[in-house]
Amino acid sequence: MKKKRKYTFRKFMNDVHLWLGLGSGIVLFLVCFSGTMLVFEKEIKALFAEDLKIKNKEEIIEIGDLVENLKSRGEVLGVSISNKETDPYEFRVKTSPEDRRGTIFFVDPHTGDTLKAPESSLDGFFMSMFRLHRWLLLDTAIGRPIVGVATIIFFFLAVSGIIIWFPKKWKWRNFKPGFKIKFSAKWKRINHDLHNTLGFYSCIFLVVMILTGLCWSFEWYRDAGSQVLGTKVFGNRGSPGIESQLDFDPSEELTVAEIYKVASKELNYNGITSISLPSSKKGVFQIRKYDESNWSPVVSDQLVLDRNGEMLQKEIFKEKPLNVQVASLIKPLHTGEIFGMFSKVLYFISCLIATSLPVTGTIIWLNKMKKKKVSSK
């Protein structure tokens, strides 16, 4: 009579990993696949975008005049100015009430020539990928919690996967197979190694994506994250509540070009300056500047200037408390933009691996089921 095997913790982890993976596999495949497509969205769109040729002339048209020229197209929300002479100005224009984020127009500051960011089939493709990633192409009220629950399951899959990856006996010769893929073996072993080894190498990046991604799925998770960090997650968007201290007197106002000079003096380094224009009589200028020599291309310093150039608020990123810095970097930590191209490549590879895990995992399970059927005959 065969001695019955004990139901060990390792066996329990195997079962958790198996059944959670089978139950969420399709959703995770779709979410990870769409996430892989979105990593290089900006770069891919840029490849197919028409360049605005900057004509080399010494005279530069005043920014305010460029704003006036664009008002025929809609409400000008803001402008981004690079320190590179070969780059056009990038204006954001609200062309209709439905155009909440604004449409990008590139403008040659020497000639005033305007080029609207061209629409293409890629826009529709990437929007579909975005909706698939966030809501599975469903209504947000239905898709968001489904993706959120699948993401939580993914976290437990990652944890249980790492536990299973560790060998029973902690000796180096037992660890070595988990670090490499034996391509000379049969396809079943190769498939197992692809799941086991690639899952191990990508795990840390996937956990970062999971923990940050849940901030968009559940308000309770976002609130809990705010409690843990001691500052509000997604709370530092613009400068709400700050209004102009001036009575509305056009003679006291500085031009956009003068505001740009004030900002350049306050933030005296090379980089892209984004200026959000006042949208009402009590509105103020909100400025972000990205230091091109910084460790991260998404980190910015912020100014709020009154319409006469008076400083109302100044926030230097490196001077903020660490918890506030982390909270403001949730999005780039999730998308891989945090360290520019280097981190994007790592995230792309990790997302690609994550997309393959439900497939290789299901194949492992099917192979085991076939083996059990053969052995039971």
Rank of each mutant, 00 (worst) to 15 (best):
T140M: 15
A141E: 15
A141M: 13
I142A: 11
I142H: 06
G143T: 05
R144Q: 12
V147L: 00
G148T: 07
V149H: 00
A150S: 09
I153R: 07
I153V: 15
F154Q: 06
F154M: 14
F155D: 08
L157G: 05
L157W: 10
L157R: 10
A158R: 04
A158F: 09
V159N: 00
G161F: 00
I162A: 11
I162G: 01
I163D: 04
I163H: 03
I164L: 14
W165M: 06
W165K: 03
W165D: 09
F166P: 03
P167H: 04
P167R: 05
K168Q: 13
K171H: 10
K171A: 07
R173S: 13
N174I: 07
F175S: 07
F175A: 10
K176F: 11
P177M: 07
P177K: 01
G178Q: 05
F179T: 01
I181A: 02
K182S: 13
F183I: 15
F183T: 13
S184H: 14
A185M: 07
A185L: 10
K186A: 14
K186P: 00
W187K: 13
K188F: 12
K188V: 13
R189N: 12
I190S: 02
N191E: 11
N191M: 11
H192G: 12
D193A: 05
D193Y: 04
L194N: 03
H195E: 03
H195W: 06
N196L: 15
N196E: 15
N196P: 09
G199H: 07
G199N: 05
G199Q: 05
Y201R: 02
C203E: 06
C203M: 14
I204F: 15
I204H: 04
L206C: 12
L206V: 13
L206M: 14
V207F: 10
V208Q: 03
V208Y: 04
V208P: 07
V208H: 03
L211H: 08
G213M: 05
L214C: 10
L214I: 10
C215K: 03
W216M: 02
S217Q: 08
S217V: 02
S217G: 06
F218L: 01
E219A: 11
W220H: 05
W220P: 01
